[in-house]
Amino acid sequence: MILNKKTKFLKTLEFFPELSLFLALIILSGCGSENPTQQVKPPAEAVPVVPDRSAPVVNVSQVTEETRQTYQWYCTQCHGEKGHGNGVNAPHLVVPPRDHTKASYLETRSDEQLFEAIKLGGLAVGRAPCMPAWGNTFEDKTIHSLVSYIRELCDCEAL
């Protein structure tokens, strides 16, 4: 059980190199804080860490007519023509395809998570293995635009 948790944690690090770097910095600074020669700064000077929103990790592409056609050609097979998760394969799957209009769920997913689910497939991101990896079919730019299209369908963004 503990081993599983460790493995999952390591996998998370694998997919989020920024997180690895962040944790490494924390660990390093933690080691550094044990150095008796370093002065401890007073709490008043501590600056809260906030994400730098001026430089987002994901390069979100615009939704174009090509994006909509790509979604219609490939994704509708499972997710349905309007993204309700009711494509022709849906009744035959053990795990229902994601409803891309359901904001309450998609708000809990970051754009990076959606990007990786499309590119690497469901299994690689701990989701349903029915979702295949599309990384060899679409360019990253197309996948980014599909993420944007899903945001358009759910009329939502990551919280």
Binding site: Q77, C78, V88, H92, G121, L123, P132, A133
Partner: peptide, 20 residues
């Protein structure tokens, strides 16, 4: 994830899988 779009047989020989 081939089973999402293609019918195959499960362990007891029942047809299962997608139809696209």
């Amino acid at each position: 994830g081939c089973i999402a779009c293609h019918e195959a047989l499960n362990l007891v020989g029942k047809v299962r899988g997608g139809v696209s």
